[in-house]
Nucleic acid binder design. Structure first.
Length: 203
DNA sequence: TACATGATGCCCT
DNA sequence: GGGCATCATGTAG
């Protein structure tokens, strides 16, 4: 559940090393505005993609129409389509002009759970079903209706956006750091961050 | 214009 | 645990 009041994260939170941002984002809230309602998930798993020296990052081959957001101002959504099936959501990091981002890999459903489950084509009958709602980068995008057309380039730090990043008083106790998932290049780097013991972390 | 590839998830065994 | 759907994107030709 949401603890206390909610505050939007600020640009300086994102204008730094993606590793620090990825760790700091654990426990924060990703909010999708749908009309008068909000779908809310707590971030429990992230991965950092570095601007330089990271062969797994989309920015390695240089700036293109697809990845241009990575070079823009921090705190903006970078959404891309993979495997012909799924969208993945990232947030741009580092100062304007430097590429780098954090991938959102899993959320703990907090508010609007029925709507998120419906968007996933699920009916919640057990704890197991609840874990299928947003535990995985493609799953969380489907749960929140995130697409490239709709959300790529969106500023996640202003109240006018229908996709936002915020915080309440929740505090993370312990963080685990492991290798990233589903990549082949630079696969050894310890750049995946999870909330220790949280059941909504993927796999 | 053609082709290889991928920061996944689902269904089957 | 493994195979496969499915297509946008980038790069080569």
């Amino acid at each position: 559940m949401i603890r206390s009041s909610i505050t939007l994260l600020r640009p300086d939170f994102f204008g730094r090393d993606p590793r620090r941002v990825a760790r700091a984002l654990l426990g924060k809230l990703l909010i999708r505005k749908v009309g008068r309602r909000s779908l809310v998930g707590r971030i429990v798993e992230t991965e950092a993609y570095l601007g330089s020296g990271d062969d797994a990052a989309h920015s390695v081959a240089g700036r293109t129409a697809r990845n241009a957001v990575l070079w823009g101002a921090p705190g903006h959504a970078y959404v891309y389509f993979v495997y012909g099936n799924h969208f993945c959501l990232n947030v741009s990091c580092l100062p304007d002009g430097e590429p780098g981002c954090v991938l959102f890999r899993a959320l703990e459903p907090v508010e609007g759970i029925d709507a998120m489950a419906a968007a996933r084509g699920l009916e919640i009958r057990s704890e197991r079903d609840l874990k299928r709602v947003a535990s995985g980068p493609g799953r969380l995008c489907e749960a929140l209706g995130i697409t490239r057309d709709r959300d790529n380039g969106t500023n996640l730090l202003i109240s006018g956006s229908d996709l936002q990043l915020a915080e309440d008083s929740y505090r993370v106790r312990r963080v685990n750091v492991t290798q990233r998932i589903g990549i082949t290049k630079s696969a050894d780097a310890p750049l995946r961050f999870t909330i220790a013991g949280n059941p909504f972390v993927s796999r």
